[in-house]
Amino acid sequence: MSRTRGSLLTGLLWTAPWWLGFLLWLALPLGLSLYISFCDYPLLRPPVFVGAKNYTDLAADPLFARVIANTFLYALLAIPLGTVVAVLLAILLNQPVRGQSIYRACIFVPTIVPLVAVAVVWMWLLNPEFGLVNSALALVGLPGPLWLESPRWAMLALVFVSLWLVGSPVVIYLAGLQDIPLTLYEAARIDGASPLRQFWHVTLPGLSPVILFNVIIGVIASWQVFALPYVMWRTQRGPGNSVYFYTMYLYDNAFQFLKMGYASAMAWVQFLIILALTGLVFRLSRRHVHYRGS
């Protein structure tokens, strides 16, 4: 008994840095934020319990509905587009050509540029009169839109800019591609499969666990989008609130309006949405993701 107990104590002692940190910096703040979500809490006064009022207010808040719709739309546009572009780029970068590592670096380097710098550069590139994007469109006779100032185009502009940061998933896809056994391609070739069929029947299934991983990361990231729209639009919401996202509204409620209770309720709703979406993605992926070990 004493030996078992001693082992337990020793184990607890040696793992104390982790579980103490977990309790203090994760479990306690989580619990407090859950409690605060049922309170009025303006930060400098003690919280006052109001029951589920913050949650019922959220249900009736038109701006809350708007930021949810905006965030869903962004996710629906950015994740599929980002996935297609990243997979295609990874396949290109996987080809044995001269200067391969230079091309790979070119794709990855933009992801290490600070987001604020990226935002400022793209504000210029998308300027309707002086920007390079509209100048390029003018060369082929197309009238460039008001990218950042039109409610119709602002969201597309942001999705377009988000592709600039596609380097990280490309690196992961690249690793995934190199993990697909060459024997599968050889077998496909012997069976007479064209390159397109090889891509469809070998590459995509082989890459499917990596795609699933990147889609889940993309879902989580899209529900946390903040810095780019915050910097790129002077009103920090875009024309007609068209690029006002969930995390931005949460931040405004917490630190601009000092409604910590309301913001905490938003944070818990966000957590549940991300959890539900991740669960949905896992469920939908069951028939389409192929694990080599299974």
Partner: peptide, 21 residues
């Protein structure tokens, strides 16, 4: 004391008028 939040609505109002929404 709640001007920060009201101010965001006023910005939205001006945007609506400016754009003719």
């Amino acid at each position: 004391p709640m001007f920060a939040e009201v101010n965001t609505e006023l910005l939205h109002l001006l945007e609506n008028v400016i754009r003719g929404t």
